[in-house]
Design a protein around this nucleic acid. Structure first.
Length: 440
RNA sequence: GCGCCCUUCGUCUAUCGGUUAGGACGACAGCCUUUCACGUUGUAAAGACGGGUUCGACUCCCGUAGGGCGCGCCA
């Protein structure tokens, strides 16, 4: 809608809202590249204003003091549940004279919600959704300690901040109705609402920590690029014809509520990885290097590289990047594929690499070393020419020469193009690694 | 239990009553090839079920089943 995005930290629950939790949210948004306008607003700082509105509603008869204790309410709910009745506050203080209040109990303030008629949310995604008012009970606006509940604080702040569009998960749809009642009690204009579908875990159940899908920082640690994650996420519940790939500018331009669906989506790591691979292949080598270095501290186990790369390692990684990036779907995979660049001589071979250097392979490697030693200019073209010539003169297929070479050079059976590897490693290191395996 | 919402290939989705139901990921097969990838070509794969309305329904209506969300002095 070309509007502003404001960031508000809803910290009215003083126990749960810790500095760490807030920092995680802000870091996560920044990393993801979802930036907001102006400074974050901390909701609890506005508690006095919220209390003022609550008391004003009491004065106008739209709210009332309720002296029921938490224990009393728990008992009430258990009884309602046991009787198979709807679990709603029964309004026991709605029309009772506060003069009859038990001594020593601090009251909460509850909304005097309408009991007849209906409350309607004209939702931009869900359509017109209607509740019979008798289904909605009198929610708490102000706690007994005088602090506001989320329900009150959100309405007051949205109103005071001039919020025009409320776009949130559809787990808030019922809250949309309850908040509409608060707006009406206050005599305020109700903002446009849009309740978008939720994202479920791969198994179809609600996305939760138990299903391995955590906060944004987890995706960072798994080696996903912010641009890829944004692209993946925007296509969950929203579409633009058959288009799958969107730049950030493009999605800002094209996104619309009209094309948001109403059913929940399952999170599919395979598709995220595919998109991430796409973005990695398109990325500048230097940008990828920067992304890898930025991710290093967040990777599990701190990786084998420590928290940072030394200048020489950084240079090798950068040179190898073209061959590395098209073989990885995440930065973690990329790093894994780059391990051989940082390995110390003599290299340890994995099982497949060992097999490649058995018998014939070992002999061919010796031939290859001899051919390479004759190369004067150590680059991709010259080393490749030397090995290809050897292939022709010896009758060995290129693969029969390249695979032992790869095994000795990288310790693995798979790697980027082997002549690229030779070039990046350089003459001295390459020949050293090869001779290590020949026992020379 | 009560209320609200949802239901097209395994997954994300297109379809504004008339299509051989399209695309993407994944899977499988071929090609390319020094490995693995990348790239490329192709194949399999869907309207939950039952009733209506209509000349005609994936599309509109009702019901059933399944799933989700909500029902806190949490947000």
């Amino acid at each position: 809608h070309g509007g502003k995005m404001l960031l508000r930290i809803e910290d009215t629950d003083r126990e749960r809202s810790t500095p760490d939790a807030i920092e995680a949210i802000i870091d996560g948004l920044k990393w993801l590249g979802l930036t907001w306008d102006g400074e974050p607003i901390y909701q609890f700082a506005r508690a006095a204003r919220h209390a003022e509105v609550a008391h004003d509603l009491v004065a106008k008869g739209h709210a009332y003091f309720c002296y029921a204790t938490p224990d009393e309410l728990t008992e009430m709910r258990e009884k309602l549940k046991a009787d198979g009745k709807p679990m709603r506050y029964d309004g026991r203080w709605r029309d009772r004279d506060p003069a009859t209040a038990p001594p020593g109990v601090k009251p909460v303030i509850r909304l005097r919600a309408p009991v007849e008629g209906e409350t309607i949310v004209e939702d931009q995604v869900q359509g017109k959704v209607t509740w019979a008012n008798k289904e909605l009970d009198d929610l708490v606006l102000l706690r007994s300690d005088g602090t506001p509940t989320y329900m009150l604080a959100v309405v007051v702040d949205d109103h005071d901040m001039g919020v025009t569009h409320i776009i949130r998960g559809d787990d808030h749809l019922t809250n949309g109705a309850r908040q509409t009642q608060i707006y009406q009690a206050c005599g305020w204009h109700v903002p446009v609402m849009a309740h978008i579908p939720l994202i479920h875990g791969p198994d179809g159940a609600k996305l939760s920590k138990r299903h391995g899908a955590l906060g944004v920082e987890a995706y960072r640690a798994m080696g996903y690029l912010p641009a890829a994650l944004r692209n993946y996420l925007v296509r969950l519940g929203w579409s633009h014809g058959d288009q799958e790939v969107f730049s950030t500018d493009e999605m800002s331009q094209l996104f619309d509520l009209k094309n948001v669906g109403r059913s929940a989506a399952r999170f599919d790591f395979a598709k995220l990885s595919n998109l991430n691979g796409l973005y990695m292949r398109q990325a500048e080598d230097s940008a990828l290097l920067a992304a890898v270095e930025e991710m290093l501290p967040y990777v599990e186990g701190g990786a084998v590289f420590g928290a940072s790369l030394d200048p020489a390692g950084r240079e090798r990684l950068l040179k190898m990047m073209p061959g590395l990036k098209e073989r990885a779907k995440t930065l973690v995979e990329l790093l894994d594929g780059a391990k051989f660049l940082f390995a110390k001589r003599p290299l340890a071979l994995d099982e497949k690499a060992s097999t490649l250097l058995d018998g014939d392979g070992r002999q061919r490697l010796a031939d290859v070393v001899q051919a390479l030693e004759g190369v004067s200019t150590w680059d991709v073209a010259s080393t490749e020419a030397a090995v290809r010539q050897l292939s022709e003169t010896s009758g060995a297929k290129l693969g029969q020469l390249a695979q032992p070479l790869r095994a000795a050079l990288t310790g693995q059976a798979t790697s980027p193009g082997i002549f690229d590897v030779l070039a990046v490693l350089g003459r001295e290191e390459s020949l050293g690694r090869l001779k290590d395996q020949l026992g020379q």
